[in-house]
Computed example of a mutant assay.
Amino acid sequence: QIERFLGIIKNFSEHPYCVYDIGCCETSLGEQGRNFYDEDLIGSELIPIAKLAWGDYLCLNFHYDKNNPSVDFLDYEESYECDPVTSKIAETFQEFLSMLLSKNTK
């Protein structure tokens, strides 16, 4: 269940929805080592794009393809430092968007 899509929030430290800032979530995951597979890597391989119920995330996964990331489910509780546990949701972001449905769709 998608709680909220993440965005880029200007002055996130002063914003009431600061916990939904991409950079803020990425930093939090990075401090715990849950968004990269190799400790010698500089940067992240999993970029969070949506916060899910129970603390999990949807992420763009650049680990397997640096140019065409898949959209993956990141299981927060099962992930550990340099050992993220992911499940592929869609091969591409475009494919993921085509999976979304509006509540108003009949």
Results as ranks from 00 to 15, higher is better:
C82V: 00
C82N: 04
S79N: 01
L46S: 04
N67P: 05
G33M: 00
E81T: 05
Y76T: 15
G43L: 08
E77I: 10
D21K: 02
L46N: 05
E45G: 08
H15T: 01
Y76V: 11
K10I: 14
L101R: 15
E45N: 10
N68C: 07
L60N: 12
K103V: 06
P84A: 11
A50P: 07
I9E: 04
H15M: 02
I42W: 12
L101Y: 12
A50I: 13
A90P: 05
M99E: 02
V19E: 13
C18I: 08
E77T: 12
E95R: 06
P69F: 01
N68L: 07
L52R: 07
D83A: 05
D56E: 07
F62D: 04
P16M: 05
G30K: 14
N61Q: 10
S70T: 06
R34K: 15
E31H: 12
K51D: 01
F12I: 12
C24A: 14
T105D: 10
D65E: 02
L6K: 07
D40H: 14
T105N: 08
G55I: 05
I8D: 12
G23H: 08
F5P: 06
G30A: 14
D75W: 08
L6I: 01
P84E: 10
A50V: 12
S13R: 15
N61K: 11
F5K: 13
N68F: 05
P69E: 06
P16Q: 08
R34G: 05
G43C: 08
Q1D: 08
E91Q: 14
F62I: 09
F96C: 01
Y37I: 09
V71A: 04
L100C: 07
R4Q: 13
C18F: 09
L60E: 11
F73W: 14
T27K: 12
R4H: 11
E3T: 10
Y64C: 09
F73C: 11
N67D: 15
C25E: 07
L29C: 03
K10Y: 13
C59G: 00
L6W: 00
A53I: 14
L6E: 00
D72F: 01
N61E: 08
D56H: 13
E77C: 11
Q32C: 11
S79V: 07
F36V: 09
L41M: 14
Y57L: 00
Q32W: 09
T86K: 04
F93E: 09
G43D: 06
Q32P: 06
L74Y: 03
E31S: 13
G43Q: 10
I9D: 03
C59V: 15
Q1N: 10
